[in-house]
Design a protein around this nucleic acid. Structure first.
Length: 247
DNA sequence: AATAACCTCAACCGCGGACGG
DNA sequence: CCCGTCCGCGGTTGAGGTTAT
């Protein structure tokens, strides 16, 4: 038994979005907010599937998107983050306000890969192409794990507790022969600017982690509205960091 | 000027994970 | 615990644009 299709394909448009579709989607989301993508197309009068609407909004229509070329600083940050996180484009995007995972992924594949290759660096391993052999990369976030253990209330990172911020993590990468490489200038503190839309914090299902709207946006410091016990970005990141150790 | 080759990036696809019944 | 549903992610595709010949 296969998976049911995300939508009724027979009656949905595909391909490039028209101006009218963009306007409808934007107007609907401004009026009702994001969420419930499956029912959104029908409610907004769009002949698109929910996934398509979500993608269009996130990658193109969102008002907080920074458009235009990537700066040199952004380039370097992407390279550093990729060396730590791998192809976790959504996590990388979380550290680049106004940039989307799709945009960064495309930019990586079209520009940065080539840039690294021209520097003689393998874009996958981030090692010099000349010293490829025996290249088991281990990325250790043990410091973060230890910090989490310190907090006997559970490994919960809160936005309003600087001591728990990801920036406190010592990123230690052991390259092959156990040489540590530190990235002291890399701030992994998640920074996502809130979209330009006024909305009451609502409990929202997001990435499988139940968090309030303010936390899902990166956390509003000391928000009394916050009822959730976790910070989405970093909790998710923690899971991914752990999985990185297996790569 | 024509067209072939290459590049870019918006959009699609399929999968995995989380949640609720 | 199982199953169906939904969301979000990463990989891939292909249309349109640009550059080279």
């Amino acid at each position: 038994m296969g998976r049911s299709p995300c939508c009724e394909k027979a009656h949905t448009n595909k391909g490039a979005w028209t101006k009218e579709e963009d306007d409808r989607l934007t107007a609907y989301i401004k009026a009702h907010g994001e969420g419930c993508w499956r029912s959104l197309p029908k409610a907004a009068g769009l002949l698109r599937c929910g996934k398509s609407c979500r993608l269009r909004w996130i990658n193109y229509l969102r008002p907080d998107l920074k458009r235009g070329n990537f700066s040199e600083e952004e380039d370097e940050l992407i390279i550093k983050l990729h060396s730590l996180l791998g192809n976790k484009w959504s996590l990388i995007a979380g550290r680049l306000p106004g940039r989307t995972d799709n945009e960064i992924k495309n930019y990586w594949n079209t520009h940065i890969r080539r840039k690294l290759m021209s520097r003689g660096i393998d874009p996958v391993t981030h090692r010099s192409i000349n010293e490829q052999h025996g290249s088991n990369i281990t990325i250790s976030f043990e410091a973060a794990a230890a910090a989490a253990r310190e907090d006997n209330k559970g490994a919960v990172f809160r936005r309003d507790e600087p001591k728990m911020a990801p920036a406190a993590i010592t990123h230690q990468m052991e390259w092959g022969q156990g040489k540590p490489l530190k990235c002291p200038d890399l701030n992994l503190d998640l920074c996502i600017s809130p979209p330009i839309q006024e909305e009451k914090p609502v409990v929202k299902r997001e990435a499988g982690v139940g968090v309030c709207f303010s936390c899902s946006l990166g956390g509003l410091p000391k928000s009394t509205d916050c009822k959730c016990s976790s910070f989405l970005g970093f909790r998710t990141a923690m899971l991914d960091f752990r999985s990185l150790e297996m790569k």
